[in-house]
Design a protein around this nucleic acid. Structure first.
Lengths: 103, 103
DNA sequence: TTTAATAGTTCGGCATTCTTGAACTATCGA
DNA sequence: TCGATAGTTCAAGAATGCCGAACTATTAAA
């Protein structure tokens, strides 16, 4: 199955990072990963009404923004937040966004 | 000429705010207004290669996100950052974004 | 008081991006 | 080996974004 490419954080522009976070579903997934670390794609989903293909796309975008890392484990894809790296690249940003997330 | 409507900050969702900031040109305008306060539309523009209509659209979006206030003064529209209000709504967010802005 | 210039908005069409169903790949369990 | 599970990829329609052209409003000049 597909092997993913993860960008170096230094190559991620701020716009892309903000764009990735500027979607309620994606932000909810990031928030989940901030709490639970190591979630399959379906487990990372904020609700089960989101189609698989849409979910897959959201995760692809989060990967491109340097926010998550995805590795294959059996037939699941395990996602983790690249917290330390992201924070190193954009200090304080993720904290500020997560702190202001709606309940 | 048109009179603008400015949203109450409490009605601005985080997604909209992030989306407004997730564009290099808009972010540059916000950064400018953070320094210079009170800029006409053309003066707020990050460069003069941006078409008027595009500029107008960007500013409309920033207004809708509760980031700027626009009032008419003669034939100019004067824009100011709604800094205190925005910070009250999303504490630390604008600071974090501006601090991470590319040079 | 026309006339011209300035400052920006609005509209409409093209282009890009987003969403999602359908088909596909890969892995695991029976 | 067969079926079920987990997720990707593709393609088409929907939704957004960008920008030229036409328009409105205000000021300045003639």
């Amino acid at each position: 199955m597909a092997r993913f490419t993860h960008p170096r954080l230094e190559d991620v522009p701020l716009d892309l990072a903000l764009h990735a976070l500027a979607d309620p579903n994606r932000l909810a997934m990031v928030a989940r990963l901030a709490e639970t670390e190591r979630l399959s794609c379906t487990d990372a989903a904020p609700c089960d009404s989101i189609p698989k293909s849409t979910l897959s796309n959201h995760l692809k975008l989060l990967r491109a923004a340097g926010l998550i890392d995805t590795t294959q484990a059996g037939r699941e894809m395990i996602n983790t937040l690249r917290r330390a790296e992201f924070d190193g690249r954009f200090p304080g940003l993720l904290d500020a966004v997560l702190a202001n997330r709606p309940v």
